[in-house]
Simulated scan of single mutants.
Amino acid sequence: MSSQHTHPPADVPAVGADSPFRQGRLPRDEAPQFVLPLVVRIEKAEPPARTDALETAARAVLVLLADERARDGGEWAEAVRDWQDARIRKVVRRARGAEWRKACALPGITVDGGTAQVRVFPPVPLDGWPKELAKLQVSGTDLDDPAPVPAATAGVPVLWLNPDLEMSAGKTMAQAGHAAQLAWWDLTAAERAAWQDSGFRLEVRTAAPDQWPALTTGGLPVVRDAGFTEIAPGSATVVADHPSLRSRL
């Protein structure tokens, strides 16, 4: 599913040393729009657990952002910069069998979770999807957790989901990816390196209803959806709770 965020505001360029944005860029809604494709492997006999798929998708976004091919001078750098200068759209599609094998033959990175596999690809124009990905299903992706999800681990980055929203697994994977990316943008270079060294360890959990208001107003990065699919525009979907960011509050 595709969705967007408003961090930083659409018409205010970020200018910090670690900013992914160009100086003097167009307002984000006026810039050419790109999308980050993610494909989750869902075999009929052995679908991944939902929470593992969400966490693996979020880590896949971070793995791509940290990859040398996405950095200045890398073969994906221009596409990644163009994508981040506009709206950070992500679309999650599913594949199995031969479809998955064809997707894996395209340039990209496969990230493994406990039960999940997600392949992330360099950004493409909204209307420029590779044919191998364009024909994959985008709707109806849902998954379950076969066992109770444990409580969040102290000291580990957590992407907190809005307890009052119901989203498909595909939509939630995209939203978790947005939240991970917002946290990445707000970290220093040293903090990013430390997170990368941990294998981008993170957890995705649903916030308690009484916890959610404080999470969304406490200064942590908040993903707000553009409202193209499933939920109302402006809905707060995920809060990125990284220990380094929380320590500054």
Rank of each mutant, 00 (worst) to 15 (best):
residue 6 T to F: 12
residue 10 A to R: 13
residue 11 D to H: 12
residue 12 V to Q: 13
residue 13 P to A: 14
residue 16 G to I: 00
residue 16 G to A: 14
residue 19 S to A: 15
residue 20 P to G: 05
residue 23 Q to W: 05
residue 29 D to P: 02
residue 38 L to P: 07
residue 49 A to G: 03
residue 49 A to F: 02
residue 64 L to F: 08
residue 66 A to F: 03
residue 69 R to M: 13
residue 73 G to M: 13
residue 78 E to H: 11
residue 97 G to H: 00
residue 107 P to L: 11
residue 108 G to F: 12
residue 110 T to C: 13
residue 116 A to V: 01
residue 120 V to M: 06
residue 120 V to Y: 09
residue 120 V to R: 09
residue 122 P to S: 10
residue 130 P to D: 00
residue 133 L to T: 05
residue 134 A to M: 08
residue 135 K to R: 15
residue 136 L to M: 10
residue 143 L to A: 03
residue 144 D to I: 15
residue 147 A to R: 12
residue 147 A to T: 04
residue 154 A to S: 04
residue 155 G to A: 01
residue 160 W to Y: 14
residue 163 P to H: 13
residue 165 L to G: 01
residue 167 M to Y: 01
residue 168 S to R: 06
residue 169 A to Q: 00
residue 172 T to G: 06
residue 174 A to R: 07
residue 176 A to M: 09
residue 178 H to K: 02
residue 181 Q to Y: 04
residue 182 L to Q: 02
residue 190 A to P: 06
residue 195 W to S: 07
residue 195 W to Y: 06
residue 195 W to I: 00
residue 199 G to W: 04
residue 201 R to H: 06
residue 202 L to S: 03
residue 204 V to C: 11
residue 205 R to C: 09
residue 212 W to F: 10
residue 217 T to Q: 12
residue 217 T to G: 03
residue 219 G to E: 15
residue 220 L to I: 14
residue 223 V to G: 05
residue 230 E to V: 09
residue 236 A to R: 15
residue 242 H to I: 04
residue 243 P to D: 04
residue 248 R to W: 01
residue 248 R to H: 09
